[in-house]
Amino acid sequence: MASLAARRTKDYTIKAISVAFAALAIFLLAWILLTLIAKGLPALGLNVFTNITMPPGQNGGLLNAIVGSLIQIAIALVIGGPIGIFAGTFLAENGKGTRIGAAARFVNDILLSAPSILVGLFIYQLLVVPFGGFSGWAGSLALAILVIPVIVRTTEDMLNLVPVGLREAAFALGAPQWKVVMMVTWRAARAGIVTGILLAIARAAGETAPLLFTSLGNNSWSVDLSKPMASLPIAIYQYAGSPFDDWVSLAWAGALLITVGVLVLNVVSRLVLSRSH
């Protein structure tokens, strides 16, 4: 065995390296955020929120993209939220210990990490081709499929933390399962379920790939869900790759908006969870 001094030196060296690696991770996060602020903040004028996307040089904004994103995220939540919460409840209650429950949990874990662009292709095949066109509905459904596994996972985890004794007490009073779940278990796990929904919103807000072939994007004002619909990530994608300076800076402004929104949602969801414990 090496001498004590040599082992000590090695220990210190490795510790120094791992401190440096942690610092590097923080540095990268700061670098990304500072880049966004430096390039996005100057471009973040009132026009971003009041004007819709326009041809280069006409002081366009991102209003239609912001509204389109909000609409699609909202519909994705309305569809995916209940399915996710119910499926998560199923895994934690009725499906516990059954083969179907185990299989559904396995599938959900895969869906959680599966390439999101394939969800876009799936909805394209399922809705866009048969109904003859890109639409806000298709985009919303693609986002709903991405939202579901996030909500299922957090709901199940949070319900598993609810003491069995609480459920047993409610059942012993003679409550049917729907009352036990809705009035006891869901209520006890409320903060956790809200966390899951916030994280799901954060995920849906930043996803670009599944919207490429579903809602496509739209450069004019449209809130018609049966027509192609604009969204912030798609507008950023389109503008960032363009040769026009004002479009590129609008893309940075949009990127700043999305990132700040997503990071705030993540931090808030952590606060909600830690405050409840």
Binding site: P82, I83, G84, F86, A87, T89, F90, L91, E93, N94, G95, I100, G101, A103, A104, V107, N108, I110, L111, A114, L118, V119, L121, F122, Q125, L126, I145, I148, P149, V152, P176, Q177, W178, V181
Partner: peptide, 27 residues
């Protein structure tokens, strides 16, 4: 209401279960 609620739980769980298969089949 209770059978309805339980059925909704099962339906959601099974929906998640078959979703992956649906995606693979469509592709």
């Amino acid at each position: 209401s209770d059978p309805l609620f339980v059925a909704a739980l099962w339906a959601s769980g099974i929906f998640v279960l078959i979703l992956l298969g649906l995606i693979i089949a469509q592709l």
